[in-house]
Amino acid sequence: MTAPERPPVGSGFSTLLYKELLRFWKVSAQTVMAPVLTALLYLLIFSHVLESHVKVYADVGYAAFLAPGLVMMSMLQNAFANSSSSLIQSKVTGNLVFVLLPPISHVEFFGAYVIAAIVRGLCVGAGVMAVTLVFAWPPLRAPVWIAVFALLGCAFMASIGMFAGILADKFDHIAAFQNFFILPATFLSGVFYSIHSLPPFWQKVSHFNPFFFMIDGFRYGFFGQSDVSPWLSLAVVGASFAVTALALLVMLERGYKLRH
């Protein structure tokens, strides 16, 4: 042991990001493989039952139509699950203190949790995409839109997950948020159908669901067709992320429900 010296002040961002990545990767059977299996079951059942009954776009089979929606839905749900579960676990077990004691800024904190959640979303998305190729090969008309919506959608859901993780006091709160908000919003976003097949009232309601724009924009990247303009979807998803990110940064800077 030597006498204390003035410690250097470096950034903890890369370590926090690495820890968050390792956290989900260590249990990848649960965090990556399980959602891929779930998506595979959706694809098996829905494409088998509806393939001959539903035609959304001309010259696009139902399985091919369904695949991008399932990929995006899986990515969004898992991006949310990653940031929300990490935060609530750390809060409930008390080990969040190890991240709050070091000189990690609110921006670094936000960045690490969001990027880790995006990476998990993309891992799951890649896995779901791989298994869907067994059933259908959707075209890739505009890959840049695919990347943009994948990243922005995951970032938005990671932020929502952080919100939920910060606001929740116990696991039940996260489960309620997931069951009563995330799950209905994703299922009613046009993953399994085009909103043009809905009655006019429900078409209008869908336009208040940000998940609809994420799925529709992502799907545009594959088929070059969508229910609304991809630019409108980009504006809605981008604005949604900007608002949640800004609100989260304010909450984190003030230590809301983290530093009492």
Binding site: P7, P8, V9, G10, L16, F98, L101, P102, P103
Partner: peptide, 8 residues
């Protein structure tokens, strides 16, 4: 990790 959080 704890070391890394402090930039070490």
């Amino acid at each position: 990790f704890q070391s890394g959080y402090f930039g070490l």
